[in-house]
C-alpha cells in the first residue's frame, strides 16, 4: 500500500511566496524515506500541509488511502510529527507534555502513562520527566518531541530535521531508534541536511527543488545514477603535472592534493594504476563528497 501519495501540491503563502509548485511524491508503506532539499525548498511546508498546520492552495494528498480533505481527522490520527522547531510549553514537564498529547489522540490517561514511561525511558528522558522542559538541553528537547510524536502509535512518522543540533553519539542512537521503529512497521519520512544520514538510514528518497520534486527513487539507484565520481588524493611528494589517464581528469587543488573526476565507467583501480605507472606515490584517497551529497549538489544546482 502507498503510505503517502501527494499529487500536484501547491502552496502560495499570504506573503506571495510560492513554496510548492505542483509537488508530487509517493512513499511506500513501511519505507524509510528521505525528503532532501536546500533551505527554503519547501520541505517544512509539505509536512505542514500533511499535518494541518499549513493550508494548501491546490493538489491532493492521501495518507494510507485516506484523503486529507475528506477525512482530515483520520489522517491526523495516522500521522505523528516531529517539527523542525521546538513547539512545546517550556513550563510543562516532559511527562505532562507527552501524557497530554496522548489524550488529544483519545488515549485514556492510564494507558498514556504506561506508554509515556516506556518512551521516555527508551529516549533517555526518564530522569528529566518531572523538570520544566525549558531546563532540557537542545538534544533532549528534540528527543522529547520524538517521544511526543509517538504516544498515539502513529502509522507514519514525519520528522523535520530530527538530528539538527544533536551530537554524534546521540545521533547514532537516534538512528538505531528510528530503524527499530521502522522495522516494527512504522513508515518514516524524514528531512535532513546531513546527506550521509539520509544515505545510511533511508532506502528511498525524493529531492525537492523550489517546490517540486526533481528526483525520486531508491537510494542505491539515485546514487548509481551519478554520471561522474569525484575523488581527492594526496601524493607523497609535490607533483607538477599528471598525464591523462583514460577518461579521468586530474586537477591540482593543493600542494599535495589532487582532484580526480571519474566517468561513470571509471574505476579507482584504473586511476591508481595510471598514477603508479607515472611513478606517483599516493598516500591517501577519499571521495570528495559523500556520493549522495554529490548527487544532491548536481541535482539542485
Amino acid at each position: 500500500m502507498i503510505a503517502l501519495d501527494i499529487q500536484g501540491l501547491t502552496k502560495q503563502y499570504a506573503t506571495g511566496a510560492k513554496a510548492l509548485q505542483g509537488l508530487s511524491m509517493r512513499v511506500e508503506e513501511g519505507a524509510m524515506h528521505a525528503l532532501l532539499g536546500a533551505n527554503g525548498a519547501g520541505k517544512t511546508t509539505t509536512i505542514g500541509i500533511l499535518t494541518g498546520l499549513v493550508r494548501k492552495s491546490g493538489g491532493t494528498a492521501t495518507v494510507l488511502g485516506h484523503d486529507l480533505d475528506a477525512e482530515p481527522e483520520v489522517v491526523r490520527s495516522l500521522i505523528g510529527v516531529v517539527p523542525q522547531e521546538f513547539n512545546f510549553s517550556i513550563f510543562e514537564t516532559p511527562f505532562d507534555i507527552c501524557v497530554t498529547q496522548a489524550g488529544f489522540y483519545g488515549v485514556p490517561r492510564q494507558e498514556a502513562v504506561t506508554r509515556v514511561e516506556a518512551l521516555l525511558k527508551q529516549l533517555g528522558l526518564w530522569e528529566k520527566r518531572a523538570l520544566p522542559s525549558r531546563t532540557l538541553s537542545g538534544g533532549m528537547k528534540r528527543r522529547l518531541m520524538i517521544a511526543r510524536a509517538l504516544v498515539h502509535q502513529p502509522k507514519i512518522l514525519l520528522l523535520d530535521e530530527p538530528t539538527a543540533g544533536v551530537d554524534v553519539e546521540l545521533r547514532r542512537s537516534m538512528w538505531e531508534f528510528l530503524q527499530t521503529l521502522n522495522a516494527q512497521g512504522t513508515t518514516i519520512l524524514l528531512t535532513t541536511h546531513y546527506l550521509e544520514e539520509a544515505e545510511q538510514l533511508c532506502q528511498t528518497a525524493s529531492i525537492i527543488k523550489q517546490g517540486t520534486i526533481v528526483r525520486e527513487g531508491k537510494m542505491a539507484e539515485l546514487v548509481a545514477s551519478l554520471d561522474v565520481k569525484r575523488f581527492v588524493f594526496t601524493t607523497a611528494t609535490p607533483i607538477a603535472s599528471v598525464s591523462p589517464i583514460d577518461g579521468i581528469v586530474c586537477k591540482k587543488i593543493g600542494d599535495l592534493e589532487w582532484d580526480a573526476e571519474l566517468p561513470q565507467t571509471g574505476t579507482v583501480t584504473a586511476l591508481l594504476a595510471g598514477l603508479s605507472a607515472q611513478g606517483i606515490t599516493v598516500t591517501d584517497i577519499r571521495p570528495r563528497n559523500n556520493r549522495l551529497e554529490e548527487l544532491f549538489l548536481q541535482t539542485i544546482s
Binding site: 499535518t51 494541518g52 498546520l53 481527522e73 483520520v74 491526523r76 490520527s77 500521522i79 510529527v81 517539527p83 522547531e85 521546538f86 513547539n87 512545546f88 510549553s89 517550556i90 507534555i97 497530554t100 498529547q101 488529544f104 489522540y105 483519545g106 511526543r148
Partner: peptide
C-alpha cells in the same frame, strides 16, 4: 495566547481534536 506564542498550540492542531 501563550500557547500560540510558544507554538504549543500546534500540539492541538496536528491532533484529531475538533
Amino acid at each position: 495566547f501563550a500557547a500560540k506564542f510558544q507554538r504549543s498550540i500546534e500540539e492541538l492542531l496536528v491532533s484529531p481534536v475538533k
